[in-house]
Design a protein around this nucleic acid. Structure first.
Length: 617
DNA sequence: GCGGATCAC
DNA sequence: TATGGTGATCCGC
């Protein structure tokens, strides 16, 4: 009995220790590291902390979840799975029909980007273990990686692994400038390239190779040399038939290397057959463990389990895994700013707080932060979400829908406070280490350039359309006149037209919350009239109403058609939307920076940086 | 639609 | 001495 308990605990701690190695375990530079020793050090450095206890609890939950999965599989195996098997095979056949091997897709990844930039300024750091970021490492150089240091690791843990580690603070402006240098080179090769993040990009080099009569390998070699010549930083690249494969390949010969995966089915299938599941973007520590539990260690292993994967993990996961097995991925590379943003939020960690007054004050502060973000990104949101993390690292979220789209700190606070109060009741003596606010179902507040009927609006015609409304210039400040034309050109995005429109009417209303609240009766009903289909609000007028419904229905159809062609699951996170606003900012110029407190300025810079896309070239 | 959870960077 | 922030997606209910 004792021995069995011991064994169980030991196994559980094995999985916990593996988990504690962190999310970036499979990154380059760790191959030669003794992970057992590293995990032992991390484990001992963390043991007993609240963080550790929470990780331990999560690990236990996962262990339970996995045993349920295994039980369910045993149950399924008793049943007749032939129809599921046929469904899976049909899906594979369907996917195979759509396989596109005609494109040359490249994933480009800067090597230890922040660290590399710092080393340019301080060459003496090149030869010693060095990391960027305090508290939590954002990245570290390859010397540090030899000790087991990784991005995302707590600073004090990294110091245990490597006491001589030098940590330098982040300097966002520097990285942003360097990233821009890289992007300037990439534009020469594919003007439609996609910034996946500040140090990663996808390119479609099919056209470039054809026009210049170059092999993909030569083109990428040259591109990497160009990047180095221009920016003095090394990049690694993967070349393959689609984005998923290219991403995996860019890690093969890191740092400062490239890898080409030949675009024929046989080669791809063999490549996937031996590829550990964790190497695929979208399979993290948890899913890796779940797959491992059913005997799937590599993408090739997936096939044998195809009959019950959908029932065990869901339809989306099934489709995703089938694409992993086949080595399929998207072949369409979109500019980052063509992705539509879905939410805007902010959150912050702080020294534990408990008193209701302090928590309310924190919420108020976060509301003001979010107001600033919403102003910059030019959005407001119909749904408001509050997030809290207890001192135990347990996370909770609550959301509500205010009577109108919110963007002002007063409103953000007003409508999130009840959620916080409710949480304080639900969780007695609530002690927090983090609080955050986010708006979803967002609506653009960009100045509309197109009116409801699709006509281009001129400033003089504004009055004829909505005579009762205030002068537009008074309800929100707009960028300088010289940027207006550029801004107008960006507004040709079809899917956004409705949302642009909504702001014309709604914008005026929600900025007058006080009078709305006083004028109780139909104010909310009329002033905040909402289209049953989309997010548009408009005045109660039959003609415009009918026109709108027609318009809206046609858009809805298009939207669904588009959605159904989208690749399933986490083929790609969509960072691009974040860059939309910054792309605009690049063109329009940054709003004048009023004097902010120093930490605020740092915040601003950080946000500006993380939002950089490929539009600012 | 809501809340929890996972994932990427 | 003390383990991040932003955004997206999926699942079960």
């Amino acid at each position: 009995m004792m021995a069995s308990d011991e064994a169980t605990r030991s196994i559980e701690h094995d999985s916990l220790k593996y988990h504690l190695l962190g999310p970036s375990l499979t990154k380059a530079g760790q191959d030669a590291v003794d992970q057992t020793k590293v995990s032992e050090i991390i484990y001992n450095a963390s043991k007993g902390s609240k963080f550790f206890n929470n990780e331990e609890a999560k690990d236990k939950n996962l262990t339970e979840k996995i045993s349920k999965v295994l039980a369910k599989r045993r149950q399924l195996e008793q049943l007749d799975l032939t129809s599921d098997l046929r469904r899976a095979d049909d899906y594979i056949a369907e996917l195979e029909l759509g396989r596109d091997l005609s494109q040359v897709i490249v994933h480009l990844d800067c090597d230890a980007f922040y660290a590399a930039v710092e080393e340019l300024d301080r060459p003496e750091l090149k030869d010693v273990p060095m990391a960027v970021g305090k508290g939590v490492l954002t990245t570290c150089n390859y010397h540090a990686r030899k000790f087991g240091c990784r991005s995302g690791m707590a600073g004090f843990v990294a110091m245990k692994l490597c006491p001589q580690l030098i940590c330098v603070p982040m300097n966002f402006a520097k990285y942003a400038a360097k990233a821009e240098e890289v992007r300037e080179v990439l534009t020469q090769y594919d003007p439609g390239f996609e910034s996946a993040s500040c140090d990663e990009a996808y390119l479609n080099l099919t056209e470039f190779c054809n026009e210049h009569h170059m092999t993909p390998e030569d083109a990428v070699s040259q591109m990497r040399a160009d990047v180095y010549a221009k920016a003095k930083i090394t990049v690694s690249a993967g070349i393959a038939a689609n984005a998923k494969l290219a991403k995996i390949c860019s890690n093969k010969n890191k740092p400062n290397g490239q890898f080409l995966l030949a675009s024929d089915r046989q080669t791809i299938m063999e490549f996937m057959r031996d590829l550990p599941t964790r190497k695929v973007n979208g399979i993290g520590r948890v899913f890796e463990r779940e797959l491992d539990a059913i005997g799937v260690k590599t993408c090739g292993d997936i096939y044998a389990h195809r009959a019950y994967l959908a029932k065990l993990f869901g339809q989306k996961a099934f489709q995703f895994l089938m694409q992993c097995y086949l080595g399929l991925g998207r072949t369409v590379i979109k500019r980052a700013e063509d992705y539509e943003r879905k939410s805007v939020g902010t959150e912050t960690t702080f020294k534990e707080l408990q008193s209701p007054d302090a928590l309310r004050e924190k919420l108020r502060h976060i509301a003001e932060e979010l107001e600033g973000d919403l102003k910059r990104t030019e959005y407001k949101g119909r749904t408001l979400c509050i997030k809290i993390k207890l001192h135990t690292y347990e996370v909770h979220t609550r959301q509500s829908t205010p009577p109108f789209a919110v963007h002002k700190a007063d409103d953000l606070y007003k409508y999130s406070l009840p959620m916080l109060e409710k949480l304080m009741k639900e969780i007695p003596n609530m002690k927090l280490r983090l609080m955050g606010l986010r708006v979803t179902h967002i609506i653009s507040t960009k100045k509309p350039g197109i009116d409801f009927f699709g006509r281009v609006k001129t400033s003089s015609s504004t009055a004829t359309k909505a005579p009762t409304l205030k002068n537009e210039e008074t309800w929100e400040t707009w960028p300088e006149e010289e940027f207006e034309e550029a801004a107008r050109q960006e507004r040709n995005d079809e899917m956004n037209e409705l949302e642009k429109l909504s702001q014309e009417y709604q914008g005026q209303h929600d900025s007058a919350t006080k009078s709305d609240a006083e004028d109780q009766r139909p104010a909310v009903a009329e002033e905040h009239w909402q289209c049953p289909i989309c997010t548009v609000a408009q005045p109660p007028n039959d003609a415009t109403f009918n026109a709108h419904i027609d318009f809206c229905l046609s858009k809805q159809t298009i939207k669904e058609a588009v959605r159904s062609t989208e690749p399933p699951m986490m083929e790609k996170q969509q960072p691009g939307s974040a860059s939309k606003s910054i792309a605009n900012r690049g063109k329009r110029g940054r709003p004048k920076n009023e004097t902010l407190p120093l930490d605020q300025q740092a915040r601003e810079k950080r946000r500006a940086f993380f939002s950089l896309g490929n539009g600012s070239a």
